[in-house]
Each structure stands twice: as structure tokens, then as C-alpha cells.
Computed example of a mutant assay.
Amino acid sequence: MGFRTDISERQRRFGDELRRLRNSAGLSSAEIGDVLGMKSPAVSHTEAGRLGLNLERLDLWLDTCGAHDPEYRAGLIAMCKSNGKGWWTEYRPHVVPEALDLAEFEATSTSFINYQTHLIPGFLQTKAYIEVIHEYAEKKVEFRLRRQQMITAESSSPFHAVIHEAALHMMYGGPAVMREQLNHLIEMARLPHVTIQILPFDSTVYASTDTAFLLMHGAHTRLDTVLLENPHGPTFVGDPEGVAAFRRKFDRLKGMALPPLNASVDGPSPAFRDSWGMIQHVRYKLLGR
């Protein structure tokens, strides 16, 4: 089998998991290769995602390294068997490879947590807002709308977002677009599996609130993945320590944020400030603009 020239994030992550398992078991590339009937360079290429692995050898790799958790094994088997194709494949000519990788990860995720600083989370954006963000590129807009089906279709995955108040005040597209966007947030909060919290400007606690991220829960916690948004482009984080750090960060952020938006009531509770009241306050200010 020839080397892959274009390695997807799933293939790269699969190789990373194999390498972590081998290292945890205290085995060298040559030692695991002897068990699997592979030469050491082939093991290295497999761990780098350049070579695939058949299911028989995967089972042997997992057994040898002591990976017996059934959910973790099932997740790795699914990653190994996947051909990487899905609804996102047709958009390959129109979006960057990282967007395709993200859609593939989302398709196998069981739930999502998202922190955003200056943008409304992608899953919660209106079409008009997306058009502004993507400069009216039709296929990119269509791609974003297709991704939203992860939380709008039947049997959707749970989604919890903490949105910095700054994102509510950014006038992307003008007041009319933002009014519609804020209305949409309220409507999305009516979905039983969607939780929305606002992190206010007047928060007195610092929790490294400058970096937006999306944490996607996989078939097992060891297969959770973080998409980290950077000026130079998106980065995927899959090592357990890194993912755990973002999980702790989100727990702190949601503790700092206002209580979740409850769109089932007519107004915010008089007893405390909440996310519903914050969104309504910003929305009313837009009425005069």
C-alpha cells in the first residue's frame, strides 16, 4: 500500500492514539512491529497517518497495549474503518481542508461545548450573519448551514455555548442582521438540548477568555477533540492533557457566565441577572438604530 499524500485529521488522530497506546505500554516501534508482523518503519508511518491498518492488526495492537475499554476500542475501530466520506465531501473544492476535518469529527461526536469571544457560535448563526462572515461566498454559507443540522435535526447532540458579551455588540451586517441574530439565539435556546450562557463584560474573574474553542465529545473521553481558533488557522487538539485543560476552562467559564438563557419564560427573573435579560437588553438597544 502506498503512502497517503493528503492526511486527514481523523487519520492523523488515529495514528496519534496508536502511538500513545504503544508508549503507555512501554513498547518500541520494533517490538509492536514484531507482534503485528510489521517492520519498524511501517509502524512509524502508521502512527503518522501515512499508512492504514487493517482491523486484524488493530485488534492485536489494542490487545498488546492493554486497551480493553469497549467504548474506546469501538471508537478506534470506527476511525480505522471510516473512508472519510460524508455530506461534506461535495464541498471539498469550496472550503479549506480543516473545515472538512471539522465536519467529519462533528458527525461522530456525541455532544459539544463551545466558547466564543467576538462571534456568535457557528451552530447558532443565522443565514444573514453567516453571509457577512463568509463574504457572501455561497458554498461556504451553504456548508455552515449544513453543519448546523448537528443540533437542529431530530435526535440532535447536546450543545452548550458560553458567548462573551462582546459578540452581542459586534454589528456584523448592521443592526437589522444583529436583531435577527439575537432573536435566533432566543429561539435556539427553546431547544431542550441547547444551553446558552452569556459571559458579561463586568466579570471580575480572569479565566483566559481571549481564545475561542469548540470541544467535541467522542465515543469515549479519550477520543474528545478540541478545535482551537487561531489567527493563522484552526488547530485540532487531541492529547488527553490538552483536552482536559480546555474542559476545565469551560467549566470555569460557565461558572463565571450568567445563568443560562431560559426562553420559556416571558422575562428574566427579578431575583438575578441572567443570559435572557442580557440578550434582551442588547436587542432593545438595537431597536433604535
Rank of each mutant, 00 (worst) to 15 (best):
I130V: 15
S24E: 15
Q125K: 05
G255W: 03
A48N: 12
K139N: 11
M188V: 03
V162C: 05
T89V: 06
F272D: 07
L102Q: 06
L60D: 01
V282L: 08
L199F: 01
F250M: 05
D224R: 00
S269R: 09
T108W: 03
P93L: 01
L58Y: 05
A74R: 10
G238R: 05
G122S: 04
H184E: 03
G86R: 05
S8P: 04
L215M: 12
T204D: 14
E98V: 10
Y115I: 08
A78R: 09
D63N: 14
A257V: 01
Y115S: 03
M38E: 08
K139S: 10
R289M: 14
F105P: 07
E154S: 13
G233Q: 04
D63R: 14
L215P: 00
K140D: 04
G233R: 00
M150H: 13
Q149W: 08
Y91C: 03
F246E: 04
Q149D: 12
E17F: 01
A137R: 15
P192C: 07
D210I: 02
P41Y: 07
E98R: 10
D63P: 01
I151L: 09
F213R: 11
T126Y: 11
Q197C: 05
R283T: 14
A245I: 07
T126S: 08
A42C: 11
A244D: 15
Y72P: 00
G122N: 03
D16W: 03
I130G: 00
S111E: 13
F14L: 15
T117K: 02
L53H: 08
H94R: 02
K249E: 08
A153M: 13
Y206F: 11
G33K: 11
R289N: 14
V205T: 14
Y115H: 02
M256A: 07
G75T: 00
I120A: 07
G84F: 04
K140S: 08
R289P: 02
R179W: 05
L18N: 05
A167F: 07
R92Y: 02
G86S: 12
R12Q: 12
I151D: 04
P175N: 07
E106V: 02
S24L: 12
V265R: 15
R4A: 10
E47Q: 08
R19S: 13
M38A: 09
P93Q: 07
V282E: 13
Y284F: 13
S264N: 13
F236A: 07
L261F: 09
P240M: 03
K127D: 13
I32W: 04
G52E: 08
A161Y: 00
K285Q: 15
P93V: 03
L214W: 00
S109P: 06
R19C: 07
H94D: 13
P192F: 11
E165C: 10
R248I: 04
A107G: 08
M256I: 15
V43I: 15
S109L: 06
A263L: 11
P200Q: 09
L258D: 06
A161N: 02
T211M: 12
P41V: 07
D101R: 03
M256C: 05
H184T: 04
D251K: 10
R19E: 12
E104S: 11
R92I: 06
